[in-house]
């Protein structure tokens, strides 16, 4: 059990630093919108945040990894027109697994 609980001060410091940094980023936007008057371009910019962030996170994976990922992304997009979110996830996972296997065999 000794190795299970093994730790040292620098590791604890790093974990604490990461935790504080992460929490600060997660609430600073909250503070920002409390004190900034939102209208005009600022408001339009904020309304674009969801799509802009979501796209930025996935773009390298779905557009610049390989044909299997890009193909699966297109299939997933089409599925999203018809299926609920759970179905969309299932279609994405299955289609990327099948495409990777199929392209791997070529």
């Amino acid at each position: 059990m000794e190795s299970f609980f093994h730790t040292d001060p620098l590791t604890l410091l790093a974990i604490l630093g990461m935790g504080v940094a992460t929490y600060v980023t997660r609430i600073s936007g909250l503070l920002l919108v409390r004190f900034v008057d939102l209208k005009g371009r600022t408001r339009a910019a904020l309304e674009a945040v969801p799509v802009a962030v979501l796209m930025a996170v996935i773009a390298p994976t779905v557009l610049a990894t390989g044909p299997a990922e890009t193909g699966a992304a297109i299939i997933t997009m089409l599925a999203a027109f018809r299926l609920p979110l759970l179905g969309v996830v299932a279609v994405g996972v299955v289609s990327v697994a099948v495409l990777r296997a199929a392209l791997g065999m070529l």
């Binding site: 969801p50 996935i58 997009m77 279609v91 994405g92 996972v93 299955v94 697994a97």
Partner: peptide, 19 residues
């Protein structure tokens, strides 16, 4: 190997289409 890594891009794609 099982495509699990793609669950997160998939849900993000689904959410983007919702927006």
């Amino acid at each position: 190997k099982w495509g699990f890594d793609f669950a997160f891009p998939a849900i993000f794609i689904g959410l983007i289409m919702g927006f």
